[in-house]
């Protein structure tokens, strides 16, 4: 298991909690399921440690739209890589609500989906590989394609915008 973020392997200093059960000491960073956040947010907001929310397919990112400034991290789970709902959730969080914290892909996260995830706003990838392999996979995946047709919030220039620029350059 290794988490790759911004081209490096990072330590996982977050604990993912279940729907119920005791909270760890107040300075520990925790990730809680959406329902638990909804039920316990008043007490969770007072913690010293960071709080993150875990979204699973079927959850509505809209439910945490008002709380985003309280959240340092949102984990989005892919129970199977074929369940693509998480891509939409990430885009809504980044592009609609302007979430600037970490969006971490967890679950069935494989090399060949990483570029798409990144394009949708994920910036951390929890892979089931050792650190070196995970980093190598993320790097290879990110380098495979350099042309993008769709505008997303990822900052990459699209083919359309580059064409536009080129035309403007020719004219001016």
């Amino acid at each position: 298991m290794a988490i790759v973020k911004h081209d490096t392997v990072i330590d996982n200093d977050w604990i993912t909690l279940d729907a119920e059960g005791d909270l760890p000491a107040g300075d520990v960073n925790i990730i809680v399921p959406l329902d638990r956040w909804k039920a316990e947010q008043d007490s969770l907001k007072g913690r010293n440690g960071g709080v993150g929310v875990l979204l699973v397919p079927g959850d509505a990112p809209e439910d945490i739209a008002a709380d985003l400034d309280r959240l340092a991290l949102i984990a989005i789970r892919f129970p199977a890589y074929t369940d693509g709902r998480g891509y939409s959730y990430a885009r809504v969080l980044r592009e609609r609500y302007g979430f600037a914290g970490e969006i971490r892909a967890v679950g069935d996260v494989l090399r060949d989906q990483i570029l798409n995830m990144h394009r949708c706003g994920f910036d951390a990838f929890d892979l089931k590989d050792d650190a070196d392999t995970a980093l190598a996979k993320v790097r290879a995946a990110m380098a495979e394609m350099t042309v993008y047709y769709q505008p997303t919030g990822d900052g990459r220039a699209t083919a359309g915008s580059l064409r536009e620029r080129r035309r403007a350059g020719q004219v001016g």
């Binding site: 890589y81 369940d83 693509g84 891509y87 570029l115 949708c120 394609m145 047709y149 359309g160």
Partner: peptide, 13 residues
Amino acid sequence: RQWSTFHPEFTYL
């Protein structure tokens, strides 16, 4: 065609 090709959000519908 261009919009739908490798649409990052809609590859696992």
